[in-house]
Nucleic acid binder design. Structure first.
Lengths: 208, 208
DNA sequence: CTCATAAGCGGACTGCGGTCCGTTTTATTC
DNA sequence: GAATAAAACGGACCGCAGTCCGCTTATGAG
């Protein structure tokens, strides 16, 4: 995992050479196309390179590894979701009471995985989700804020990890596909979990 | 993932040819040695085959894939743990109240991962833990029984999944190693989670 | 416009997981 | 103790992720 000189993070506003930008776009498009056409599990890095008309080294220079490419792919579609819970309309976005936003967040996450859960799962490092990735961090930070706002006391950071653990793509996919559980059941279980954490009936008892 | 004729499960009491048994032992020993000497991440299947003095095909016939070998390795040390919570002395084993056994189970799981967490993590299929594996199923079944005994109502199966999700090797290792959280903190967070699920103060309020 | 330099590029190459199939060993039956 | 069928064996082989390094191209200065 020694990085040498190349990019990868591209956090926001760094400049990028014209050809590099073009190639990233080409690669992302090519990858998205292959995923749509043949599924995540049948995507090879050589395929992506060939479909984009670039060399294999370029793919790895841009995305580091297969998981990195998947992350980039997942983050593209996930950007909308992030916006929705950061600044969109309630109950997912700000404006609704915290307990309700928590419920909405779970439901939205579960529904989202129906669409691109397989990509998100593939974005994990070998041996599970990549808990250190910025996206995951953002999710947990969001949960922490909501928990605090809901009046929850104690180790909010680990509480957020516990909540996020249930929303992990691999687990949700297993429950949904292998075990055949309907989304409604998963959402209900999420709500119960949140209620338990926020202290009884939705935490609203704390307001009395 | 098409199995052809070979073994793999060896669930309990099926007979096994002499040479097969001998080779399995050789392979497991060789693998354990390599793990001890060079770490899980530096174990290759060729190494194991060579160290055991058998062909590579034999390794795969026995264990299916790398994750399967890791599972077998993890299950060896995990057997003791299973016995401990199934039939050992309280509070981990039967004899103590359910809420106390739940606490003990979390603490024991967290402490166990200190020792062979990396092997357990490597035992997961690509893209996270192998939720379908018998060992995982046993853990969840155990949790369901304890939750029911603690008087918890509702979707116990998913509640067990939620609890187990926090004990997943990849997550615990991340918290412990990358984030530097002490085990005591993880255990405390587990206890809080359990208390929330069992309905307030350890669920003991339900007995009133 | 030209040049210098850094960034980017590409494809041959390596190592590992996993498969295939002809050969060998074990267990069973007579 | 053959003969036979089933199971196991082993290592050549394949495909893919990831690396390496000599070549190309964009960019900014003079």
């Amino acid at each position: 995992m020694e990085r040498r000189g190349g990019p990868l993070p591209l956090n926001g506003n760094e400049s990028e050479r014209r050809d590099a930008a073009r190639n990233r776009e080409l690669l992302l498009d090519a990858a998205a196309g292959i995923v749509a056409r043949r599924g995540v599990e049948n995507l090879t890095m050589d395929d992506v390179a060939r479909a984009a008309g670039v060399g294999k080294g370029t793919v790895f220079r841009r995305f580091g590894n297969r998981a990195g490419l998947m992350q980039a792919l997942a983050d593209q579609t996930g950007r909308d979701f992030q916006k929705a819970f950061m600044s969109g309309p309630p109950p997912l976005g700000p404006g609704a009471p915290a307990w309700e936003r928590l419920r909405a967040f779970g439901a939205a996450s579960i529904n989202r995985l129906e669409v691109d859960g397989r990509v998100v799962r593939a974005a994990g490092s070998p041996g599970g989700a990549d808990h250190a990735h910025p996206t995951q961090r953002l999710v947990r930070l969001h949960l922490i804020v909501l928990l605090r706002e809901a009046g929850v006391q104690g180790d909010l950071e680990l509480a957020a990890y516990q909540l996020a653990a249930f929303l992990e793509a691999g687990l949700l996919l297993h429950l949904s596909e292998d075990r055949g559980m309907p989304r409604s059941r998963l959402i209900e279980a999420w709500n119960v979990l949140v209620e338990g954490m926020t202290g009884g009936q939705d935490g609203r008892l704390l307001d009395q």
